[in-house]
Design a protein around this nucleic acid. Structure first.
Lengths: 113, 113
DNA sequence: TAATGAATTGAAGAAATTTTCAATTCATAC
DNA sequence: GTATGAATTGAAAATTTCTTCAATTCATTA
């Protein structure tokens, strides 16, 4: 079976798409404070257990997190990449984008008609 | 017009989802070199004109790019946020995540973007 | 070994996104 | 004013992702 390399822009798109879900974002944010058992993730995120598991499976398959069983509980952790820096960069852009929208909103509010 | 504040993690998820498409990624990468008319985007990206327009519309609506008409052509530009830093952060994580996919790794190392 | 709790899996229906095509707008040239 | 090229729009069909539920695995405890 020949290895057909995936175009880089497609790998990037898949990566961002993997991040594009509220539950997955929250999991990644929580794991930035350190490894955490599923039990705690479930307490912090309002979501059905099986739904959380589905989202965790997506994160696991992508390779951005790892899972380790410890007795009856499973502990998740970031696989190592600097997720914090990525989130900071995203927040900077998001902040700028939302600020612009707010300015637009202010203009709309200020408009006479 | 009631303003319903959106949870931050949801805004983040929407932001990443907006990035999660190969054509949109390529547009953002091309625009990092400066404003560019649709004509040039279409020459650089293999995609149906109307499909490109759909993807451009998504980028526009999100606020990450702006469009300005100049005669018969339309010129797109990044709205201002530091998209380059975001892409670098993403690439760092991707590089780490894909250590077992040699071909893609080589592309990542060679990529300047 | 039976029972319980923790977490995952598989599969189906629901929901969202993507692609495609015909129709439209806008500016320029004839 | 009519034709042409550039780009966008609206809407449907195709595809993908999301949610949900029942069934399952694995470890612990009674």
């Amino acid at each position: 079976m020949a290895i057909v390399p995936k175009p880089l822009y497609q790998a990037k798109a898949e990566f961002f798409r993997m991040l594009g879900h509220p539950v997955r974002i929250r999991v990644l944010e929580l794991l930035q404070e350190g490894p955490m058992p599923v039990r705690d993730l479930r307490a912090a995120i309002e979501v059905e257990p099986s739904n959380l598991s589905q989202q965790l499976a997506i994160l696991r398959r992508s390779g951005i997190v790892t899972a380790a069983r410890d007795g009856a509980t499973v502990v998740y952790a970031l696989a190592g990449g600097d997720v914090a820096e990525l989130m900071r960069a995203a927040r900077r852009i998001l902040t700028e984008m939302l600020t612009d929208q707010e300015e637009l909103l202010d203009e709309l509010r200020a408009a006479e008609v």
